[in-house]
Design a protein around this nucleic acid. Structure first.
Length: 201
DNA sequence: CAAACGATTTTCT
DNA sequence: GAAAATCGTTTGG
């Protein structure tokens, strides 16, 4: 089933980030369906999180969509090249978001290989937020779309994930956030080949 | 209006 | 392991 809006509108962004592990992210652009199991996420707790674009309730054109109610997408262009896909959570005016960092490919692998210019299926295809977005065809113009479909949505397919296999740790690429860079806001599946290496660890 | 920078990935040494 | 690629957003004049 497709996750309902009530799933995203809860107030504990870290808990939602953990629960997204094992769910299935699906995109359906231009009649091409691609999907994968979410194996890595990071929580960004808005106003109180120095690593978040919305730290201190900073409000700009770019971050505006984070202040909407939960259940929509937030896509941000990083380093002028990479499109990073986030899920907006919590209620209106609370800018929480979850970065989806990696998936394990399920459907539309051929299309993903073509989008990435690859020939063989390797973890590099979708390990890492920029690579994953490109494989799924996600662009900045897809920001603000509802995650209830039809273009993009997240499903619960009752994939069995053992709680003990969900590992938490520090986030990647946010060293500048001082003490907030130490928070255990990153979650991933133990021993999964598609989890990005990040910089540390 | 001009300048600096980033929630990254790829490629070269 | 180190450095480049590359552009929208943000910030300062």
């Amino acid at each position: 089933m497709i996750l309902p809006e009530s799933f995203y509108e809860r107030k504990d962004v870290v808990k939602i980030a953990r629960e997204l592990i094992g769910k299935v992210l699906v995109t359906n652009f231009d009649s091409v369906k691609t999907s994968g199991i979410i194996v890595e996420t990071e929580a960004y707790a808005g106003a109180s999180d120095k690593a978040s674009h919305a730290f201190g309730n900073r409000r700009t054109n770019r971050t505006e969509v984070m202040y909407a109610h939960g259940g929509i997408s937030y896509v941000y262009l990083c380093y002028g090249i990479h499109h990073l896909f986030n899920v907006v959570t919590n209620v209106k005016d609370v800018p929480h978001a979850i970065l989806i960092r990696a998936i394990e490919p399920l459907e539309g692998i051929e299309a993903m290989l073509e989008r990435r210019g690859k020939e063989k299926l390797t973890p590099v295809l979708t390990a890492g937020p920029g690579a994953m977005s490109m494989a799924l065809g996600i662009l900045t113009r897809h920001t603000g779309l509802p995650l209830s479909g039809p273009d993009i949505y997240i499903e619960d397919r009752n994939i069995n994930i053992r709680k003990a296999d969900i590992i938490s740790g520090t986030r990647v690429g946010v060293d500048y956030a001082a003490e907030d860079a130490l928070l255990p806001y990153r979650f991933w599946l133990r021993d999964n080949k598609y989890v990005s290496k990040g910089k540390g660890l």
